[in-house]
């Protein structure tokens, strides 16, 4: 059993003046090294939950323990943010400076890291996200996907144990989306960084280790992606989508084709159908 790195217990959050809870009694553990996807409609509370994970918001009820710290004061929040980085939705609104490498250095400068160390960690982080050749470029000349990779590098340079991606692909084109997702996946596998991937794209959620579906501030479904998506009707009713192949499998089963329960990809479907023929 791996260590639990995020422990959310009965977490509630209510925005000032709101009548309902944005996050409603959520209990969730994330294991170190896991790639967890949180899927939900706009307004399902998934982004608010993300902000509770790195202490940008503090819960109004329950507790969130991240990397052993339950933030109670400003210094704790600071510690939590050091170990839990966050990449936001809008690529334009999270880059602080006019030069790519300076932006990567921003977090480390805030931590008071010595200059030589900042230099080497920034170079390493830019290399890791494949943006070394753009170190001196101006962010305004980059594509959306490239900007998001710079944002990842800025977080990576701080050597976090967890990175939360809060709908980081929502504003990108298919190529950028694929790039940023692949990058997160690689950081998870190669560097062992725990990833919390928040999205409303089911294609991405389908590739996670574990999937949590949020609705109305609560956890509606949880489990391995294929077992969650296998509940096709429930997922569609929650205003979400299931992979096209799962829809097809659902249709075929209704017409009496005996397919296994957990078919999700083109490849799996092709193999299963060839055996039936």
């Amino acid at each position: 059993m791996k260590n639990t790195i995020i422990e959310a217990r009965d977490v509630c959050f209510k925005y000032e003046g709101a009548s309902t809870l944005a996050v409603d009694h959520v209990t969730l553990d994330v294991a170190e090294g896991e790639f967890l996807a949180i899927l939900g409609r706009n307004g399902s509370g998934k982004s608010t939950f993300a902000k509770l994970l790195n202490a940008l918001q503090l819960p109004t009820g329950g507790s969130v323990k991240v990397n052993g710290i339950t933030p109670a004061n400003e210094d704790d929040c600071y510690e939590v943010r050091k170990s839990c980085g966050m990449v936001f939705q809008n690529p334009d609104n999270q880059i602080v400076t006019t030069i790519v490498e300076e932006d990567c250095a921003f977090g480390l400068e805030n931590l008071g890291t010595p200059p030589q160390e900042i230099r080497s960690r920034v170079d390493e982080a830019l290399h890791s996200v494949g943006m070394s050749e753009f170190a001196q470029a101006s962010p305004s000349m980059l594509s959306g996907g490239q900007k998001q990779r710079v944002a990842v590098a800025g977080v990576l340079a701080m050597r976090p144990r967890i990175i939360v991606f809060d709908e980081s692909t929502a504003m990108l084109d298919p190529i950028g989306r694929r790039d940023v997702f692949a990058l997160a996946r690689r950081l998870n596998v190669e560097e062992g960084i725990t990833i919390v991937w928040i999205t409303h794209f089911m294609e991405e959620a389908a590739m996670a280790d574990r999937l949590v579906v949020m609705d109305g501030g609560r956890i509606a479904l949880e489990g391995e992606p294929r077992s969650v998506f296998a509940q096709t009707d429930r997922v569609l009713k929650l205003g979400l989508d299931v992979p096209e192949i799962m829809k097809l499998a659902h249709m075929l089963r209704e017409r009496g084709v005996a397919l296994p329960d957990d078919i999700m990809t083109v490849n799996e479907m092709a193999v299963a159908l060839c055996q039936l023929k």
Binding site: L248, M251, N267, A270, K277
Partner: peptide, 27 residues
Amino acid sequence: ECAKLARRLREAGFDMPEGIYRTEDVC
């Protein structure tokens, strides 16, 4: 995805019309 599947199946000897892509049609 369903257009991709149709191609795979055609290559595996299924009789699938060219350019088919709608889930219902592929089904």
